[in-house]
């Protein structure tokens, strides 16, 4: 089974040289720590920066330089800064090659819910609806089950949706799955995780064809 860092490491393997990438808050943010050697990517943060760098050294924090999670950041050499309308032009206009975000639920036709629990938690969608509606390549990074042990990979989402039929790939602590016609197609198992465990933790339709390899994580 993977921890959050493991999920980030596995998704980092999906990065390709020259891509512009938007990372959501939570597990996706960790991906920036595991970029494979020889791969150059630029991170976009939707509050208005391309070329987001690592956190600043202590004492060098700048209140005017934050990411979409409101964390203090640095700008890489060659970074650029722009307003929110321009930022979402990049997103809606499909100039970003990969979007990685977290989710509370994903359904087996690619619907995603991650912004609201009616009556309990209403933080807002932020940029998530714009991102999922426009991105061609969306990976969801999340735990396979919630804190109560219930599956987050469902036949149908129960929470208010963020977007419909948009998620292409999911990487969880248990597995890598693609969303294809007919459900979640199991591609890889996390180290030490059996197909039975993945079946038990997946409520939506699961497609298992042939031998399912174990993930290779450096």
């Amino acid at each position: 089974m993977l921890d959050k860092k493991g999920i980030a490491k596995r998704i980092a393997q999906e990065l390709r040289d020259g891509w512009y990438v938007n990372l959501g808050i939570g597990i996706p943010t960790l991906i920036a720590n595991y970029i494979p050697q020889g791969i150059n990517v630029e991170f976009q943060s939707e509050n208005g920066i391309l070329g987001m760098g690592p956190f600043p050294f202590e004492g060098e924090e700048d209140a005017d330089l934050i990411n979409a999670g409101k964390q203090t950041i640095t700008a890489m050499s060659g970074a650029c800064i722009f307003d929110s309308a321009t930022s979402f032009a990049m997103i809606r206009g499909q100039h970003i090659q990969l979007t990685v975000l977290g989710a509370m639920e994903v359904s087996d036709n690619g619907d995603i819910a991650n912004w609201k629990i009616p009556g309990r938690m209403v933080k807002g969608m932020g940029g998530a609806m714009d991102l999922v509606a426009s991105a061609d390549n969306i990976i969801v990074a999340m735990m396979h089950t919630n804190k109560k042990g219930k599956s987050k990979l469902l036949r149908q989402c129960t929470l208010p949706l963020t977007g419909v039929q948009c998620v292409k790939k999911i990487v969880t602590n248990l597995a890598v799955l693609d969303i294809v016609e007919g459900g979640f197609k199991l591609l890889e198992r996390a180290p030490g995780v059996s197909i039975e465990e993945i079946k038990a933790a997946t409520e939506g339709r699961l497609i298992i064809e042939g031998e399912i390899p174990e993930m290779v994580i450096a």
Partner: peptide, 23 residues
């Protein structure tokens, strides 16, 4: 949605009464 919010403000200032977005 954040992008719609930004664009709705931009449109308001730019004399564009409405627009279509996938978000």
């Amino acid at each position: 949605p954040q992008g719609s919010l930004a664009e709705r403000c931009r449109a308001g200032g730019a004399g564009i009464p409405a627009f279509f977005t996938p978000a």
